[in-house]
Design a protein around this nucleic acid. Structure first.
Lengths: 215, 215
DNA sequence: TAGATTGTTAATCGATTAACAATC
DNA sequence: TAGATTGTTAATCGATTAACAATC
């Protein structure tokens, strides 16, 4: 966590709260939408209304990274988009490894949403010999035993874990050994990884279970 | 939001912070795992270590709902599991509607993880005439125009939105009209709904984009 | 009994919001 | 110029943590 220091104007870094970083992609998403609607300029107020966030918070969040607006007129959308894209390191073509080609893994591999945003699945692994050597999007599925070598060779830094609960931790350890620094984890378990490795968890069931509390 | 008042011992309700409710399913997940490992008793410390959460926070969170432990010995896992299940209303067999049977919707429909946890997809809708009348898990896919009638008839309260960005808001409005009170939204947009309707968003790309900040 | 761990209070820490001078 | 909106400071609000008496 918090390892990277970007060459961005105003950054006495190591200090931007993770919760602020977490909102940047949301801002970016909203800006793209506004742009597609033909807008060229927006304000913290307009953005906030769209996102259900206070305008003060948006201005505060952005102020961690520099000054992107103009008093009286707001933010030029194209400019702010570029800056956020840069801050989040989204100018790169990211290579991603996917581990687990079961139900979920297949869905992820077929889902077009990652590639559109610059996250390209370049290696797929599974434990099942019947799946190994199958092809998906021109990629040959490899056995889990190849994880370390392949990921090292291709210098992949981002991986998606879509394996059953009970093997998730051991897969995570392989990925870490292979040099992966960011893991998107779909297994319903808290993974233990070194401090310099990011983990983000996705568990739709947890979201449903939160909502039923109020029903 | 915050409408429901449960008949649980210590609840001067409307007051449990959403962030606390959000952690309960995580605790439940960890308890199930401990149980499967054969453990019968645990402590806030053990749970905390597993989850990367402080033991004080776990005790504080639980204290919103009652007293579930014993000094000196900790928590009986089966008992705490039951209580959390009850608090989160997870004893019910929940009916769920799925809107959108594209790439993502199909993956969701095939994914077994929801049903195992008591969330059963009972109605599926899509706009595409070619998909309507197809079957999935014994359910006949219906056209979006049937959303209101079907959901009302079947008294469904939970829906999953897996439609393209640009129709998500209109679908949400149909769902609300139909009486849905909880929406799991996979479209990358902030939905506007009345205060008594819950929304939880899932966007894996946002998670990846957060992590690349640190890479 | 001695050791362990709860539930809770008070202290700390951090995040959000309100307000406003600066300025486009 | 008058109106609007930024970036930032200070105030408020809320969440986390430390500490400990109670007690199993």
């Amino acid at each position: 966590m918090g390892s990277g220091a970007l060459p961005t104007s105003k950054r006495t870094d190591g200090e931007v709260p993770a919760i602020v970083v977490g909102r940047l992609p949301i801002y970016l998403r909203a800006l793209s939408l506004l742009e597609e609607e033909g807008k060229e300029v927006t304000s913290s107020q307009e953005l906030g209304k769209r996102l259900g966030i206070s305008s003060a918070q948006i201005r505060k969040d952005l102020s961690h990274f520099g000054e992107f607006g103009k008093q009286g007129t707001g933010y030029r959308i194209s400019f702010l988009k570029e800056r956020l894209t840069e801050i989040l390191n989204l100018n790169k073509y990211w290579h991603v490894a996917l581990v687990g080609f079961g139900n979920l893994g297949q869905a992820i591999a077929h889902y077009g949403g990652f590639a559109v945003k610059g996250f390209h699945i370049k290696a797929v692994f599974d434990n099942d010999p019947n799946k190994v050597d199958q092809e998906i999007n021109d990629i040959v599925i490899q056995h889990n035993s190849e994880i370390i070598q392949t990921i090292r060779e291709e210098n992949i830094k981002i991986a998606i874990i879509a394996v059953p609960l009970y093997v998730a931790q051991e897969i995570a350890e392989l990925l870490v050994q292979a040099g992966v620094k960011a893991i998107l984890n779909y297994a319903p378990i808290n993974l233990f990884v070194p401090d310099d490795v990011q983990v983000q968890n996705i568990d739709p069931v947890v979201h449903l279970q939160q909502m039923t509390y109020y029903l």
